[in-house]
């Protein structure tokens, strides 16, 4: 059965959606100068990749991979991507925590959370001769 590209894309909608969100997150990180928004962009990218994995592991008509002794013939979905992404979530939280600590510290130094403003403040400091 040969499908057109459009039908294939529609059938693979979770992958397509997750990659679109990945692109949007990437754009958020690159284009926004607010440090907090950059961090949220990273979080969006990470969760979109998690979605990609979960969609990889899913089977239509399957049940969650918890063994039900009453139903030995149940079709379980693939448990491996879920297990991997449990690790991934912990990693993403660790990075978020560290980045927030850095944001606090930068705020203490510069009084702002905007990368462009920090850049300007630092350049002014250089021109005035004081080392920052």
């Amino acid at each position: 059965m040969e499908l057109t590209i459009g039908a294939k894309l529609l059938n693979n909608y979770p992958f397509l959606g997750s990659l679109i969100i990945f692109g949007i997150g990437c754009y958020t990180v690159l284009s926004n100068s607010n440090l907090l928004k950059k961090l949220l962009g990273i979080n969006i990218m990470e969760s979109s990749i998690f979605l990609f994995y979960v969609a990889t592991g899913n089977i239509r008509g399957g049940v969650p991979p918890i063994v039900d002794l009453a139903q030995p013939e149940a079709l379980y979905i693939n448990p491996l991507p879920t297990g991997l992404m449990l690790t991934g979530i912990v990693v993403s939280i660790s990075v978020t925590g560290f980045a927030l600590a850095l944001i606090i510290k930068l705020y203490r130094f510069y009084g702002t959370m905007d990368a462009n403003e920090i850049f300007e403040i630092r350049n002014e400091g250089k021109n005035n001769g004081s080392s920052s």
């Binding site: 944001i103 130094f109 510069y110 920090i118 920052s132």
Partner: peptide, 12 residues
């Protein structure tokens, strides 16, 4: 301040 800023850029 300078190394903190560099760290944030590196981390992101």
């Amino acid at each position: 301040a300078r190394s903190t800023e560099a760290t944030f850029k590196y981390l992101i």
